[in-house]
Amino acid sequence: MFVRTVYATGDPAKVDTAIRSLNSQGRDLLEERPGYRGAGIFVDRELGKLLAVSWWESEEARRNSDEVMRERRGALLEPFAATTAVENYEAVVFHRVRRPEAGGGLRITRLEFDPMDADLLADTFRASVVPRLETLPGLAGASLHVDRERGRGMVGALFVDRNALAASRGPQASARHEGAAKAHVTVIGLEEFEVVHADVRGD
């Protein structure tokens, strides 16, 4: 599958307005588009960060949907978003244990790597990192998204609640250290979010 992420920052007091728009008008727009496979909304209410992720069955479906969403995105995120960044990825690993619920937790690990090592990263994540993550209590799922051309990636680990997210920090740090060394990647960012909504129809 293929993924588009929209990362917005703004006034924390206004983030719920954006969430309501994305969960109503935004979801309706996405569901009308061919090839749509699901979406998630994740938020850091304290700092004022919102991450919206949409999943698509093909690169073409994602690209075609963006022609419509690009025109509407600004209005959907008003008056919250002061900055907005849009990125595209290929979802090379999608491992779901259970469906995440609202109020759960998401940990995002941002990566950089030599584009030549994209397959090494995918193989390492699938063979070494996922089995380690599966041992973490409360894991709802894990995914690896890569941009092969830019050498950028994003790992998402979903947990059923915030307590499980917090308890997993140490064990996941160990798995991250081991996986980064094996896959020749550099970790450039680590973030946590509250799950507002997450529903992906996997293969």
Rank of each mutant, 00 (worst) to 15 (best):
T17G: 03
R62A: 07
H197M: 06
S143D: 14
T9P: 08
A91C: 11
A8H: 07
L22P: 04
E191C: 06
V196E: 05
G202K: 14
R33W: 12
E60C: 02
E134L: 05
M69L: 15
R27A: 08
L121D: 03
V3W: 01
S168I: 05
A13L: 12
L50A: 13
Q25K: 15
I19D: 10
G179C: 01
T135Y: 12
V195P: 05
G170W: 00
R132V: 12
G170M: 01
A180Y: 00
V200G: 01
A142L: 03
L139W: 06
D28L: 12
S168Q: 02
A167D: 05
F42Q: 11
E112W: 08
R162W: 12
V93E: 07
V185R: 00
T109D: 10
A173V: 03
V195H: 05
L111R: 04
V53Y: 03
L158F: 06
G26L: 02
A173K: 10
A127K: 11
A61R: 00
R72Q: 13
E194I: 09
P79W: 03
G26I: 01
A166N: 07
A91G: 11
N88R: 15
S143R: 09
E134W: 04
A198M: 08
A102C: 15
A85K: 05
P34I: 03
L121A: 10
G40H: 02
A183K: 01
A175R: 00
E191V: 05
V93Q: 15
A61V: 12
E67Q: 09
R70F: 05
G103V: 00
L190H: 13
A85I: 15
R37H: 06
N163L: 12
F42V: 15
V43E: 13
V146Q: 04
A82Q: 09
G202A: 13
T17I: 09
V53I: 14
E191G: 04
V86N: 01
E101F: 09
V15C: 02
A13V: 05
V146G: 04
R62L: 13
D114H: 07
G26T: 03
E59L: 13
A142D: 03
P34E: 03
E112M: 09
A82F: 15
F193V: 12
T5H: 02
D117L: 06
R99K: 11
K49L: 12
I108R: 07
E31Y: 15
V129N: 06
E67K: 15
G141V: 13
F2P: 01
L30S: 11
F159T: 14
P100Y: 00
A166G: 11
E78D: 14
E112C: 15
A122R: 08
M154A: 08
M154Y: 12
